[in-house]
Amino acid sequence: MTPNERSGLTMARAFIALGANLGRPGVQVQRALELLALLPQSWLVKHSRLYSSSPVGFADQPDFVNAVAELETRLSPDALMESLFAIEALLGRMRTFKNAPRTLDLDLLLYDDLIVRSPDLILPHPRMHERAFVLVPLAEIAPDAVIPGHGVAARLLSGVADQLLFPL
């Protein structure tokens, strides 16, 4: 029985990118998955395996552990983002500078087919279609996921084939 069938209410399909490269990154990503499963009005449908990737932007930092999770949720995009920030804070996230090393990073990638451009939220997540550490785990769990303005996740993989990503 799906969450939609359980509740009888319309649910949104959301995808969350998880990443960490400080402390015990694999443990932190696993813990974040556990916490995502506990979000109110939400169900963790599935998640990808963990991957290792090199940092993007600020390169002088440890490699990342990455994954993508699929949620079905009744939370609004803004409420979901607040919940993601709360999980990051709980697991020690400190925002020091752009692309800084971090104990956990949770990004809302997609929320149904919603397109949002506001100071607090951009959907789909910018540059997700250019990053193997997002596209590969997304295509693993939802190859048919459509990134508005860019296409189907599985079809975008050839564009990131030159980026190194290793399953853990």
Rank of each mutant, 00 (worst) to 15 (best):
M1P: 14
T2E: 10
P3K: 09
P3D: 10
N4T: 14
E5S: 07
R6P: 02
R6G: 07
G8T: 03
L9D: 07
L9R: 11
M11G: 00
M11Y: 05
A12I: 01
I16T: 08
A17I: 02
N21Q: 05
G23W: 06
G23K: 03
R24W: 12
P25C: 07
G26K: 05
V27T: 13
V29M: 13
V29R: 03
V29I: 15
Q30K: 10
L35P: 05
L35A: 08
L35C: 08
L38A: 15
L38Y: 06
L38V: 08
Q41W: 08
L44E: 05
H47A: 01
S48N: 08
S53L: 14
S53C: 15
S53N: 13
S54K: 11
S54W: 07
S54L: 15
S54M: 11
P55R: 11
V56N: 09
A59D: 14
D63T: 12
D63H: 12
F64K: 06
N66V: 10
N66G: 09
V68H: 02
E70R: 01
E70K: 04
L71E: 01
T73Y: 14
T73K: 14
R74M: 11
L75A: 04
S76Y: 05
P77M: 02
D78N: 09
A79W: 07
A79I: 07
L80T: 02
S83F: 01
F85R: 07
F85P: 00
F85Y: 08
A86R: 08
A86L: 06
I87T: 03
I87N: 01
A89V: 02
A89Q: 12
A89M: 04
L90C: 06
M94R: 12
M94N: 07
T96Q: 15
F97V: 14
A100V: 09
L104D: 00
L104E: 02
L104G: 00
D105C: 13
D105H: 13
L106W: 05
L110Y: 10
L110P: 04
L110H: 09
L110M: 12
D113G: 05
D113T: 02
L114A: 13
L114F: 11
L114W: 09
I115F: 08
V116Y: 09
S118Y: 01
S118T: 05
P119D: 11
L123F: 13
L123C: 13
P124D: 08
H125W: 06
H125R: 09
H125A: 02
P126K: 12
R127Q: 15
R127I: 14
M128P: 04
M128D: 01
M128W: 04
E130W: 06
R131K: 08
A132H: 03
A132K: 00
F133S: 01
F133V: 07
V134R: 04
V134P: 02
V134L: 10
L135A: 07
L135E: 03
V136M: 10
V136E: 06
V136N: 04
A139M: 11
E140D: 08
I141C: 02
D144I: 06
A145R: 05
V146H: 00
V146Q: 01
P148Q: 13
P148D: 12
G151F: 13
G151T: 13
V152S: 03
A153H: 02
A154W: 00
R155N: 15
R155I: 06
L156M: 10
L156K: 02
A161S: 12
A161N: 05
D162S: 14
D162G: 10
D162Q: 15
L164R: 14
L165A: 08
L165V: 08
L165S: 06
F166I: 07
